[in-house]
Computed example of a mutant assay.
Amino acid sequence: MKYAFTKMHGLGNDFVVFDAFSQPLELTPEQFRHIGDRNFGIGCDQILLVEPPTLPDTDFNYRIFNADGDEVEQCGNGARCFARYVHDKGLTDKREIRVGTKAGVITLLMEADDMIRVNMGVPVLEPGQIPFVADQAAAEYQVEVQGETLTLGVVSMGNPHAVMVVDNLEHAPLEQIGSALQQHPRFPQRVNVGFMQILSADAIALRVFERGVGETLACGTGACAAVVSGRLRGLLNKTVKVSLPGGSLMIEWPDEQAPVLMYGPAASVFEGSIEL
């Protein structure tokens, strides 16, 4: 059967988006892996499904599948693409959209300058809810990895993130450390690993090694988690420019009780159909 799709990206973090709102759509993990394959399928970091709402007072439901076929809880760059998609397809004319995800409800706002603001909710810092194995919440944790002790910030933005501060981002051991932490027993649901270089109190550079994907050109939840971790360590101000390989996001986090706000672009690349 043929399925129509739209290829999109947020700062180079690329997605295949399917309309499961107008008609039901059920795909298998094998089909998701085929779609995500850059040689034999369409190719993407993640597949997004736009579905009818399942939670009260929401406009849509949003599901996210990694290129390896696993369903995940949240994706910030994907959320911006989601907002662009439902507007471009005429599925809503609202400027502010409430969307249900596996991690809870998020709010998407189409700004006047064509940027998209995402209210990512209040970050989760309690280890058991991230999930992360630790006795109590802290700004930093010591984790043994491959014979060395790493200092990490650990945050959930609806999905788990570990954040390392590095002096030189270009030479950071992304794949080596990222792969080891994803298999670490202290992260029972694996983890996205961010490598953060502090440029100033208002700016960071970031690379992210994502679960089920590897390094991506951008990671919205990773940018949020990095700013939260940097703020908890006393390194960053309330509003921070996050420079990723694919471009920049603006992240705001006033305090521990406040939601994290993310501002950035989203773009459609092309449309097509695929036989599955």
Rank of each mutant, 00 (worst) to 15 (best):
K2W: 12
Y3G: 00
T6H: 09
K7W: 04
H9E: 05
D14K: 06
V16P: 03
V16I: 15
V16W: 09
F21K: 11
F21W: 15
P24R: 01
L25E: 05
T28I: 06
Q31K: 08
F32W: 13
R38Y: 10
N39A: 11
F40G: 00
F40E: 04
D45T: 09
Q46K: 03
I47R: 14
E51K: 15
P52V: 05
T54Y: 01
P56C: 12
T58H: 07
N61Q: 11
Y62S: 07
Y62L: 10
Y62F: 15
R63D: 04
I64C: 07
F65I: 09
N66T: 13
A67I: 01
D68M: 05
D70E: 14
E73K: 09
R80I: 06
C81T: 02
F82D: 04
F82G: 05
V86C: 06
V86S: 07
V86M: 12
K89C: 12
G90A: 05
D93W: 02
R98I: 04
K102T: 00
K102F: 02
A103P: 03
G104Y: 10
L109M: 02
E111C: 10
D113K: 09
G121W: 07
L125E: 09
P127K: 14
Q129C: 06
Q129S: 14
F132S: 12
F132I: 05
A134Q: 10
Y141E: 08
Y141C: 12
V143A: 13
V145M: 13
L150K: 05
T151Q: 10
T151V: 14
V154I: 14
V155K: 11
M157F: 13
G158C: 11
H161K: 10
A162R: 07
V166D: 04
H171D: 07
H171K: 09
P173D: 05
P173K: 07
E175I: 07
I177D: 03
S179Y: 05
S179A: 14
Q182N: 09
Q183A: 15
P185K: 07
R186G: 08
F187N: 07
P188A: 10
R190A: 15
N192L: 04
N192A: 07
V193A: 13
V193E: 01
G194R: 08
F195L: 02
L199A: 14
A203I: 00
A205D: 13
V208S: 04
E210P: 08
R211Y: 08
E215C: 11
T216F: 13
C219A: 11
C219D: 02
T221M: 14
K238F: 00
V240Y: 03
V240G: 03
V240I: 09
K241S: 07
K241Q: 13
V242K: 04
V242I: 08
L244P: 02
L244E: 10
P245H: 11
E252H: 12
D255S: 15
E256H: 11
V260L: 11
L261Q: 13
L261I: 08
M262I: 06
M262V: 03
A267K: 13
S268G: 12
F270P: 03
E271P: 00
S273K: 11
L276R: 06
